[in-house]
Structure formats: C-alpha cells, structure tokens
C-alpha cells in the first residue's frame, strides 16, 4: 500500500511534467483559432524545448552561479509544487509537506530566485522586469490569501487534500461566496502567470515586458528549463483552482483504485481542455493593462475575495 501511494505520487508528478508544455500549446492553439490565425501544432512547445536543449548556452560574461543555478531551482520548486497539489488523487505522501499557504510561499521562492537572477547580469531590462514582477507579487498575495481563507471557511482545512475531501463528502459545492472566490482566483492566476491583462507572454516589446524581460539573458537549456517551469507553474495554478473549486473526479482517500485514477486523469484532462479554452478566450477579449493599472486589477480581485468571505460569514455561518 505504501509503495502504491509512492508509485501514484511519482506518476502524478511525471504526468504534470509531461503535459505542462502541452497545456501551454493548447492555449496557444485556442488563441490562434479565436484570432483567425493558423494555429501552431500542439506539440510546438516540445519542439521548442528540444531545440533549446540542443543549443549551446550563450552566457553573459559576468553571470554568477546564482544565475546559472536559478533555472534548476525554478524547475525544482515547480515540480515539488506539482507533487504537493492533488491533481488526480488526494492520498499523496508529499501532500502533507505543505498546505495551500505554504504553496504560495513556494511560488514566492521561485519568483524571488528568478528576480534575483534577472538582476544578476546588470542590464536595464533585467532589473526592470524583476521590479515589476515583485510588484505584481505583493499585489497578488493578499488576494490569493483571501481566496484560501474562503476555502478554509468551507472545509476547515487549508491543506488541498482536505479541501477536496471536504467537498467530496459535502456533495455539491456551488455557493455564492465560492463563486466570488473563484473569480478572484482566476484573476490572480492570470496575473501570477504573466498573462494578459497584466503581461503578454507573446510580447517582445521591451517596455511592456515583465516575465520576458527577466528571462532575456537566458538561452538554450537554461531558457528551456525556465520556460518549462513557467508552463508547470500555469498547470499548477490551474490544478490548485480545480482542487479548490472544481474537485469533481479527483480520486479521494479510500476510493482510489485503478479505475478511479483513470477516471480522475480523464477528468483532469477534460478540465484542462476547458480551462485552456477559457484562458484563450479571456486573452483574446481583453487588452493588456498599463503597468500602473495592475494595482486596480488586483485590488478588484482582492475585493471579490473579501466579498466572498463576507457573504459566507453573513449568510453562510
């Protein structure tokens, strides 16, 4: 039994690592369709990764060890997060290592490392990107915490398996306060993953870049790992969202035979397909905000989450 849970854990992590580029590719494809462009093939991100891994690293002359270690650290944090988030089953040995609040901390670690690496070379764009990304970070975290507060009020737990299991035992989970929280979470997700309306993943216009400005100095295998990590980050955020708001299909403790796991995997893929479509739709419909509109955007997310909290405390409790 013990080995089985480890096998399951390992399988889940491998699945996440494997499908993360696919998810990014799927969003790109949906967006191309919506914008009447011919879409790149779904496997395009894998081709990019392969190409990048084969190239020689062009490293800035003054780059320190911190700069070279950061891609691996990023990859490590994101894989660890994937191991903790119950995307398929809740009975995971790693899940106890962190609750959702600690997961935010883990993402913050990745963010700080990337920002420091961006400042390491000492170009203007690197530090500008670092500054902006850290700014988005401190604006997004209060909203994210309030979202988790909502989840805690429902399930009495901030551990994601606990949240999933609580909703499995309570049955249906549609509630006005959770809808507010879900919208807030979606807004934070877009901001944290450097997507429109805060940042544009496809941009190379220097003055508007955030994420791209930070990774400007990375090349070849370093860049591949950074990109793979950001794909994994998006997938992780989506899976946290599923665990909090759409836990249907996730195999809970005790009911996790092979059939349930297969079903959970199918459910996960289906959710990702829909979520990718929604992301693409949002990105096609909205324009990128000016950087100093970001506080308003994230304050809205925060207020929505607080509204959810108040709705729960006033009506629900």
């Amino acid at each position: 039994m013990k080995t089985l849970t480890f096998v399951r854990q390992f399988g889940e992590v491998l699945l996440a690592i494997a499908i993360a580029p696919l998810f990014a590719g799927w969003i790109a494809q949906c967006r191309a369709w919506l914008q009447n462009r011919s879409a790149p093939p779904l496997v395009q991100p894998y081709r990019m990764l392969r190409k990048l891994f084969q190239k020689d690293v062009a490293l800035a002359a003054d780059a320190s060890r911190l700069f070279r270690a950061t891609p691996y650290v990023l990859f490590g944090t994101m894989v660890l997060a994937a191991a903790i988030i119950p995307s398929i089953a809740t009975d995971l040995p790693f899940a106890q290592a962190a609750d959702a609040i600690a997961l935010i901390g883990l993402f913050a670690t990745a963010r700080v490392f990337l920002s420091l690496a961006a400042m390491d070379i000492g170009t203007a764009f690197g530090s500008m990107g670092a500054r902006r990304d850290m700014m988005i970070g401190f604006l997004a975290e209060p909203a994210l915490l309030m979202v988790l507060f909502n989840a805690f009020l429902f399930s009495g737990s901030t551990a994601l398996p606990g949240v999933v299991e609580a909703s499995a035992t309570h049955g249906s989970f549609i509630d006005p306060s959770l809808i507010f929280a879900a919208i807030a979470f979606l807004m934070v997700l877009l901001a944290e993953n450097a997507r429109i309306p805060i940042d544009n993943p496809a941009t190379h216009l220097e003055l508007t870049m955030i994420h791209e400005a930070m990774v400007l100095e990375y090349s070849a295998r370093h860049l591949a790992l950074v990109e793979w990590s950001s794909d994994l980050k998006l997938l992780n955020y989506a899976c946290i969202g599923f665990a909090l708001f759409l836990p249907w299909g996730i195999a809970t403790h005790g009911a996790d035979g092979t059939a349930a796991l297969a079903l959970a995997a199918v459910a996960l893929l289906a959710k990702l397909v829909v979520a990718g479509g929604i992301f693409a739709l949002i990105e096609s419909l909205s324009a990128k905000l000016r950087i100093f509109r970001a506080p308003e955007y994230l304050a809205t997310a925060f207020l929505l989450a607080v509204l959810g909290l108040l709705v729960h405390l006033l009506l629900g409790a």
């Binding site: 660890l80 790693f94 106890q96 290592a97 962190a98 609750d99 609040i101 600690a102 883990l106 009495g156 737990s157 901030t158 551990a159 606990g162």
Partner: peptide, 9 residues
C-alpha cells in the same frame, strides 16, 4: 487542517 515540512521542501 494544515501541515508544513521544511525538510521535504
């Protein structure tokens, strides 16, 4: 309710 392990991290 919640747990955290720095060592596992």
């Amino acid at each position: 309710q919640a747990s955290y392990s720095g060592l596992v991290f």
